[in-house]
Design a protein around this nucleic acid. Structure first.
Lengths: 331, 331
DNA sequence: ATATAATGATTAAACGATTAAACAAAAATA
DNA sequence: TATTTTTGTTTAATCGTTTAATCATTATAT
């Protein structure tokens, strides 16, 4: 690879000091630089194909204009949609994004934090996995700006952006009840993650019957969903509705209902969480809780940029969701 | 934010030179450093919470251990799945990934190239949009390692990784023919993108009837798909099968077939491209061309790392796809 | 006892940019 | 004309690391 062109090469080419080149290319010292010199320097920069070295600039300025984004899995549409919006917003503000997937593991999260730290990111947007209090404390301890995204720890004072999971689940169940469903099953993950606990609580506070809960182990997704649905269908009074607290659970559950030949919504009404093409293609388009992705992502970035400029104050944002009602839940 | 701890702080704390600290922490000069000094330095690094500054290191070493990934849209599952695999492989090799979405625009691609270049990435993996010859030449001209991914320009000698699009489409159509379909419609984008042209060519070489083609404008997706399907259904001999050359086209098309109440596969057999949950949830699980994501991504990274180590040689890799046959195409 | 080798550490330059401070030359003011 | 101001530019330090070159010591060989 050819040696990259530095400010020194430009200076040498024109016959001036590197300082002058820097001043010109950064439009500093306006009016104190001769038009001829400025013109020659700009031309030389173009001719030589000069590209400023952000690395050197960062070293000097102690700012990389880079943010670290830690999501559960960038391959998951929820994460990647968020990533896309953050990318755009970041770019508008002169920032780049380095991302990492934690796979819901606290250890991987810690590794990513180290990795991003030694790349000197100016701040983090993090969706923390379960049992990551240590990582949270670490971040808080080194006093670097960060925003908790999607999941947060209400007992710790941090910047965070999240939806009102309790309300979202509550609305979903109320909707099912309003449509005459009496036995509403809830399919969720067996996890201590705050956001999922809230979804569960939002639903069960209305249902008050623990035998209608299915708690799926994350590493036995299909198995536990199928078994759970089997159980709910064989109750003395079988369920007439299912509320799935995540995307993946809903898709897995709907596949199984298809296999069983259960009719939606005639036999079972269904409400899912998050938007996905799959919900549209189902023969009864699926009612779902819609998260305001734009807001979630852009608010996260805004809070982070605020925190970078002003490390003191902590802000929390809770955003409402929308229940998109379609055929799968009304009969 | 607290000042970050540098090697200098560690040196000062122990009472040695920064050089010695560097040697110890990098395990250089093995055996030529006293055990006591080494131990004290390592301890101090831990006590002070020292994190090496990759920016400074990069400046010195002229290597950032960062690669730039330019995809069409990170929010698109194809891109994000690829990104995830590249992320993992990159991390194993000590690299980080900075990504950008081009939105199929050559200008945005150029901007991303500049942005990533001044962040001094060691190389690029790029899915080029249409009419991006200029960007391709630019990359080749500045002599930076890069790998074209998914789309490539056969007339230019570069590193590339792609699937055999012609063969993939050909297999899909042959499969439909083998199942007795006589009038096979093909729904594709109106574009000069090489990979899509190849898919189209693979299909039309077997079909030989231009009235069975639907060329959708990318910015009028739903509109053109719907109109195209309408037309194909009203032909004197209406189509009895549809081959969609992309994921989004297939999903849009299937939604419309649902609206029309057209039965799949009884009336129309369907083959799609790429894997998606939506295909599973359709009442007749959809037959599709499966791209080997793992291979695509990891080969791209391998080629790039090869190119970084050895900028001379150019490699091209073409990978075969697999047709996953399900209910939507067999009657 | 002296020259040589091995050990353990330091010095200083470099990477590419920024920027306060210094400087020379020209222009304005006294 | 002498002095001050303004203008245009350069000098040099700095950011945090790496690393070749160098320098003391101490150990070993002659």
């Amino acid at each position: 690879m050819k040696k990259r062109v530095s400010i020194k090469d430009v200076a040498l080419h024109v016959g001036v000091s590197t300082a002058l080149v820097s001043y010109v290319l950064n439009n500093k010292k306006e009016g104190r630089i001769s038009k001829e010199a400025a013109a020659k320097i700009r031309q030389a920069a173009i001719d030589l194909n000069y590209v400023p070295n952000q690395i050197a600039r960062s070293l000097k300025s102690q700012k990389t204009n880079t943010i670290g984004l830690i999501v559960a899995d960038i391959a998951n549409p929820f994460s990647s949609q968020i990533a896309r919006i953050i990318e755009d917003e970041a770019q508008k503000n002169g920032y780049s994004v380095i991302f990492g997937s934690s796979d819901e593991s606290a250890d991987k999260t810690q590794n990513l934090i180290f990795l991003l730290l030694n790349r000197q990111v100016d701040g983090f947007i993090v969706a923390l996995p379960e049992n990551a209090e240590k990582q949270l404390n670490y971040l808080a301890g080194i006093d670097i700006p960060f925003v908790l995204f999607d999941r947060y720890y209400p007992e710790v004072e941090t910047n965070f952006v999240a939806i009102d999971n309790y309300k979202a689940a509550s609305q979903a169940v109320q909707h099912l009840m309003a449509n005459g469903r009496k036995q509403i099953g809830i399919v969720t993950y067996q996890t201590g993650l705050h956001h999922l606990s809230e979804r569960k609580r939002g639903a069960t506070d209305l249902i008050q019957n623990t035998s209608l809960e299915v708690n799926v182990r994350i590493d036995h997704l299909k198995e536990d969903v199928d078994a759970g649905i089997d159980r709910l269908l064989k109750l003395d009074t079988p369920v007439d509705a299912l509320f799935f607290t995540t995307n993946l659970l809903a898709i897995s559950g709907l596949k199984y209902l298809n296999e069983l030949g259960v009719k939606v919504p005639e036999q079972i009404a269904v409400v899912g969480f998050d938007e996905t093409d799959a919900f549209d293609l189902f023969y009864s388009p699926v009612t779902y809780v819609k998260q305001p992705m734009e807001q979630l992502a852009s608010q996260s970035l805004r809070l982070l940029l605020d925190a970078i400029d002003n490390p003191g104050a902590k802000q929390g944002v809770v955003i409402d969701t929308e229940l998109v009602v379609r055929k799968s839940s009304v009969s």
